Amino acid sequence: MARSIRAMTSPTTWCPTAHTAGQAYSAQGDDRTAGGTPGCSLEARIRLPKEVGAWAAIWTWRDGDQQIDVFEYHPDNPDLLESTNHVRRANRYHHDEAVRPAARVDLRTVFGSRSVDWWLNGRRVFADGRGVNRTWYAHLIVNLSVCAGRYHPPPQPETTEMSYEVSHLVVRRPMTTGTSVEATTSTDGAG
């Protein structure tokens, strides 16, 4: 089962009740753990939002730092995915025909200590050559925000709902033996 992430707008303001709508996964604890450590990888199948004013993203965060943007997408830039390593300052604005409002795309990101690498539909589109430090770990955030108009246009007045879908989300972490173990499951809600 896919998880649709929705944000509601009110007729008088572009700020929904909750600024972001979505599912946050913790790197500490339960069986839905999805945080990252160096060498881990993330795979996601998503349907991009189509409504102008939507700001869809999957990213990492911990203690005000450790941010890696797996992707950010704004439908007003219809063929553009943003990928950013905020830890060691590298980014790519990737234009692609496969990226468009309501398109389904497969993403993969590998969080290496020497390079963070991003894939789109099975093709590597960016290797930053900078990576994350060996002690890096972060929590995974899947969200949809509503743009207020500063960097991207706000929703149209007639827009009352916007969404994007994450139908598959997996994080794999390396084991100390050098092999990999799947740390999470698809977003179908199963343990």
Score class of each variant (00 low, 15 high):
Pro78Lys: 07
Pro78Asp: 10
Asp79Arg: 12
Leu80Ile: 15
Glu82Arg: 15
Thr84Tyr: 12
Asn85His: 04
Asn85Ala: 03
His86Val: 11
His86Gly: 06
Val87Glu: 02
Arg88Tyr: 03
Arg89Lys: 15
Ala90Thr: 08
Ala90Asn: 02
Asn91Tyr: 13
Tyr93Met: 13
His94Gly: 06
His95Glu: 14
Asp96Tyr: 07
Val99Glu: 05
Val99Ser: 06
Val99Pro: 01
Arg100Cys: 07
Arg100Asn: 13
Pro101Thr: 05
Ala102Trp: 12
Ala102Tyr: 14
Arg104His: 15
Arg104Val: 14
Asp106Ser: 11
Leu107Ile: 08
Arg108Cys: 05
Thr109Glu: 01
Phe111Lys: 02
Phe111Glu: 00
Phe111His: 00
Gly112Gln: 03
Arg114Trp: 12
Arg114Tyr: 10
Ser115Gly: 07
Val116Cys: 00
Asp117Pro: 09
Trp119Met: 03
Leu120Gly: 02
Leu120Ser: 01
Arg123Gln: 10
Arg124Val: 14
Arg124Leu: 10
Val125Gln: 01
Phe126Ser: 00
Ala127Trp: 02
Gly129His: 03
Arg130Met: 05
Thr135Lys: 13
Thr135Gly: 06
Ala138Ile: 00
Ala138Trp: 01
His139Cys: 07
His139Ala: 06
Leu140His: 01
Val142Ser: 03
Val142Met: 06
Asn143Asp: 07
Leu144Glu: 00
Ser145Cys: 10
Val146Tyr: 03
Val146Met: 10
Cys147Leu: 13
Ala148Trp: 15
Ala148Pro: 11
Arg150Lys: 14
Tyr151Thr: 07
Pro153Cys: 09
Pro154Cys: 12
Pro157Phe: 10
Thr159Phe: 04
Thr160Phe: 11
Glu161Cys: 13
Met162Gly: 04
Ser163Thr: 13
His168Gly: 08
Leu169Tyr: 01
Leu169Asn: 04
Arg172Trp: 10
Arg172Phe: 07
Arg173Lys: 11
Arg173Gly: 04
Pro174Arg: 05
Pro174Phe: 05
Met175Ile: 14
Thr176Tyr: 15
Thr176Ile: 15
Thr177Met: 13
Thr177Arg: 13
Gly178Gln: 03
Gly178Tyr: 05
Val181Arg: 14
Val181Asn: 10
Val181Phe: 11
Ala183Ile: 07
Ala183Tyr: 08
Ala183Glu: 08
Thr184Phe: 09
Thr184Leu: 09
Thr185Leu: 14
Thr187Val: 15
Asp188Val: 05
Gly189Asp: 04
Ala190Met: 14
Ala190Thr: 13
